[in-house]
Design a protein around this nucleic acid. Structure first.
Length: 511
DNA sequence: ATGTTC
């Protein structure tokens, strides 16, 4: 193989085989990166991985300083996905299994950032003639006053405490307005949780009283129905290629079928929950232990920290539930646009997958995912349709690029986790490449609907707004991301997940 | 990643 930027790896990494790299370390923590020889690994991200190892050392210090911790805190295993790249603190694409402690900062700031995919009853041939009009309608629905998601305090509290079952406990409002009009029998039928996570039961929502109250009665707020920034989007796609016919059929996907894909998180609620976790970890930090240099503070799983953990996990669960609800409403908004231009349609959930979550287990282990997606294999309790074929793994491409739907294979080496995208080739915040004309041509070609309509002369006159918007959007341009193909092939070769369908974009709404 | 609406 020729030496190129794409196959040079950081010298600190040891290639184990075609699928895995290992980071040797003095803490005896298994650290492995799932990446083929054609997937470049950012040295800066490897630097950050060393701070994860400092956290392994922090847990040892805690175990010595706080007597009687049972089980003794330690980092059991670290796995990085093929799209692993630099983030704030712990790299994005890091899966961490700990024993005897949880680490709020090992979850991305945006709690339960994730994907929702729905299969519609429309075909790409039916939709193509209406794309110009759809683009205009979606701009109105997402960015120009068309959102109109009214929620009662009861619905808000239900959502934060139970997720979608709580939101929809009383069914659809008697006189539905806006996105609510798109709720159909399939949405209510899926609420038994057999297909996917519909909610995380938590016993209160005290940290979010302001959002719940929001003026009383049926009220509107500035958060629900927002796409969010960065790499978040709401997209219409179609099934371009079927790679695994049996699984595609079981998941209700056929060639040419129009699919909705939403990538979004918990917006400000997740940030608030994470800040709560960080503050509680700091407030409860044992005086005998110096603050770790990397500022990543674990919370040991003992009696002393029980009230703090309960408070954090409640806020965390509230935020995670909000994200499920927001993705649901974003999908309803896409459905509303489709219904306006192509007539009434059916749309059914394929899967909702989280990227940023932690899972405390009764045995004292905690699985943390930051920018990685679950990829459980076939099996489970056999009660869910997905148990037959493995968990749906949604890998979005960068703007304009194909996305993939894979089936998880439950690799224990990979901590049953897959990548959540192609991964950046240019870190966020680095100088963005490409001229304005190049960006504009790209946005037109791929029908990218954005909040700033720079073709409107009144908007174009606001240079400061347009410049800031272009700067941010260039960070999400395809040239800021790796190619998704080699990343997806790495997952297959490693036995993490296998492709089921390839999806190509028709129209993208960027927040 | 970071509240764009009645």
């Amino acid at each position: 193989m020729p030496i190129s930027a794409a196959n040079r790896h950081d010298p600190r990494l040891v290639r184990v085989d075609d699928s895995w790299l290992r980071l040797p370390n003095p803490y005896d923590v298994p650290v492995e990166i799932c990446a083929g020889p054609d997937v470049p690994v950012e040295p800066v991200a490897v630097d950050e991985l060393l701070t994860v190892l400092e956290t392994a050392d922090t847990l040892r210090t805690l175990a010595r300083a706080v007597p009687g911790l049972d089980p003794e805190p330690r980092v059991e295993r670290v796995v990085c996905t093929p799209d692993f790249h630099k983030g704030a603190g712990i790299p994005i694409g890091t899966v961490l299994r700990t024993v005897g402690a949880l680490i709020p900062q090992a979850v991305g700031n945006d709690v339960n950032c994730g994907m929702r995919v729905e299969a519609t009853s429309l075909t790409v041939d039916q939709l193509r003639p209406h794309l110009d009009r759809l683009e205009r309608r979606l701009r109105h629905l997402f960015f120009a006053g068309g959102r109109r998601i009214g929620l009662t305090a009861r619905q808000r509290e239900g959502l934060l405490r139970e997720g979608l079952p709580g939101l929809l406990a009383d069914g659809v409002p008697a006189d539905p307005v806006g996105a609510w009009r798109q709720v159909g029998p399939d949405d209510l039928a899926d609420l038994d949780g057999r297909l996917h996570a519909t909610g995380f039961p938590v016993d209160s929502a005290e940290d979010f009283r302001d959002w719940i109250a929001s003026g009383g009665g049926t009220s509107y707020d500035s958060i629900i129905g927002s796409v969010g920034g960065g790499n978040h989007f709401a997209e219409l796609q179609y099934v371009a290629e079927v790679r695994d016919g049996a699984t595609a059929y079981a998941w209700g996907l056929a060639p040419g079928q129009v699919v909705l894909m939403v990538h979004s998180g918990s917006l400000s609620l997740g940030h608030q929950a994470n800040a709560t976790g960080r503050d509680l970890a700091r407030a409860g930090w044992p005086r005998a232990v110096p603050l770790p240099r990397n500022r990543i503070l674990p919370i040991p799983l003992d009696e002393r920290t029980a009230p703090a953990r309960r408070r954090y996990l409640t806020a965390f669960g509230n935020a995670a539930n909000f994200a499920l609800g927001n993705r649901f409403f974003l999908a309803l908004m896409l459905r509303a646009g489709l219904a306006e231009v192509a007539g009434e349609l059916r749309s059914r959930l394929v899967y909702d997958a989280p990227h940023n979550l932690l899972w405390p287990e009764p045995d004292g282990t905690v699985l943390h995912r930051k920018g990685a997606t679950p990829a459980a294999g076939p099996g489970g309790d056999g009660q869910r349709p997905t148990d037959l074929y493995g968990e749906p793994v949604i890998v979005p491409g960068s703007m304009g690029a194909p996305s993939y739907l894979l089936r998880g294979l439950g690799s224990s080496r990979a901590l049953a986790s897959a990548c959540h995208g192609a991964g950046r080739s240019i870190p966020r915040g680095a100088a963005s490449r490409g001229g304005d004309a190049e960006l504009d041509a790209f946005l037109r070609e791929f029908r990218v609907v954005t909040p700033v309509d720079h073709r409107d002369p009144a908007v174009a006159a606001r240079r400061d707004i347009v410049d800031a918007w272009r700067r941010d959007l260039k960070q999400e341009a395809p040239w800021a991301y790796k190619e998704v193909g080699p990343v997806v092939r790495s997952l297959g070769r490693a036995g993490v997940a296998e492709p089921v369908v390839e999806l190509r974009p028709l129209l993208t709404v960027k927040g």
